[in-house]
Design a protein around this nucleic acid. Structure first.
Lengths: 253, 253
DNA sequence: TAGTGGTCTAGACCACATT
DNA sequence: ATGTGGTCTAGACCACTAA
């Protein structure tokens, strides 16, 4: 656990060095290894400590920066972003990375299979595709510990080509897309998000326990593989008063 | 206009090479220079064409990728993302870059000074600060050509320390934050965004021309300088049925 | 097998902030 | 004057895709 003599194991893992390094530093930051936010190591210090080049260090720090964990300034150095600036109680933490895909920190996700169905028109229009065939449909609720009502209702549809994998998906084991990855062997490479404010439909209202037509944040997601094929498409409805989407942007130049 | 013998002027500009290169390529893509999306140049081709190293090329392509303009795959190459996947008619383009700050492609922004006032409680709570003093207040409407109603109502507050600059801001010249940058000499380095669904208040409803309590996308922005000081804070309300926020995420690894 | 993009090194110069 | 992070070069090896 002591982190002064860091060493990045490269054993069987195929992960690039800068990712291992990023995970290492992320863990340190979150565990409060640096009580003084301004005492975060410099690039050259990290190079020496881990025995890697500056490229590797900078690539790792770039990740942490887009997550809003650190902030960097030419001439001054790197400082850790105070937790207060990383999102409040109501706020869904991050981020620009694939971490959106595992935002299950202090929340649980329960879903049930809903059989197969044609893709609803709203989706079909959105992706501008023939979208033929019957898609496996799951519906889930995300609940956060110590909070009164659920923070999300999600309807997910799996592409017909993945029927073999979809039929083996088990509720309450892992997120849907990760089970798909494991069962089909296909990796999700890109996600597009579409955020909009909509009134709660009757089903959304009932499931979330909010008044009908009350404002909801609807996040439409397309999960794509490396070749651009759509693997999964989902719509999440979040109650307006229990959920906010937070992000950080660094201005270039 | 011919782009086969690209050359990046580095004259008086202080912009890094990779940014100039990114702008160059972005313009080419958007102007339809590559009818076949798969015929986008390879890294080595761009290195040769612009006489720069691979680092510079990759840094430029990284920008275009996070904007969702191109897609890259090891072994295959770089392809241009079809316009259909870059956001539809209703969709506010992007992105993760500082382009959020200039999303005035086909829209106009009209605002009027509202004098000075204490920071409303909602903001003060959000930034967790004493937030004393009187902040300069502007209110503006963003309208899109060929669209019936406005797509945003924005309330912006300028920090009391920037009063000298704020009092010189002129409506209908440029965005507020860019005028602040010019008038005060301070550069905006970071922006945090907080997206939530809220019901339209009476003023929001009146200004946007939507029913009271109808769902709106509220984007709370903090504009910070390099040292983390808050320069401006704003709340934008977008009608739920006229606006969507689109973003692209690449999964790392 | 040839060529692509992804990772990584070891240097260099610079703008900038702090001292 | 020193040290920081930002930019940039010229190499290298690799995993992967496609011919």
């Amino acid at each position: 656990m002591s982190a002064t003599v860091g060493k990045i194991a490269q054993k069987g893992s195929k992960k690039p060095r800068y990712q291992e390094l990023a995970e290492d530093l992320r863990a340190e930051i979150l565990s409060g290894e640096y009580p003084d936010p301004t005492q975060f190591p410099t690039e050259s210090a990290l190079c020496a400590r881990y025995g890697v080049s500056r490229f590797t260090v900078r690539e790792a720090l770039r990740s942490l920066q887009t997550e809003g964990l650190i902030q960097r300034r030419r001439g001054s150095g790197t400082v850790i972003q105070p937790a207060s600036a990383r999102g409040g109680a109501l706020h869904q933490p991050l981020s620009n990375v694939g971490e959106i895909l595992q935002y299950a920190r202090d929340s649980k996700y329960l879903f049930t299979p809903m059989g197969k169905a044609l893709l609803p028109k709203k989706f079909a229009v959105h992706i501008g595709e023939v979208a033929s065939g019957r898609w496996h449909h799951f519906r889930g609720l995300r609940v956060r510990q110590g909070q009164s009502g659920p923070i999300a209702l999600t309807d997910a549809y799996i592409h017909p080509d993945l029927e073999a994998a979809a039929s083996q998906i088990k509720p309450n084991e892992d997120t849907i897309f990760r089970q798909i990855e494991r069962l089909s062997g296909i990796r999700i490479a890109r996600v597009t998000q579409d955020i909009q404010a909509v009134p709660a439909s009757s089903t959304v209202a009932a499931e979330l326990g909010v008044p009908r037509r009350s404002p909801c944040l609807r996040i439409l997601r397309c999960y794509l593989d490396a070749t651009g094929r759509i693997l999964e498409i989902s719509a999440s409805h979040h109650p307006g008063d229990r959920f906010a989407y937070t992000m950080h942007i660094e201005v270039e130049g």
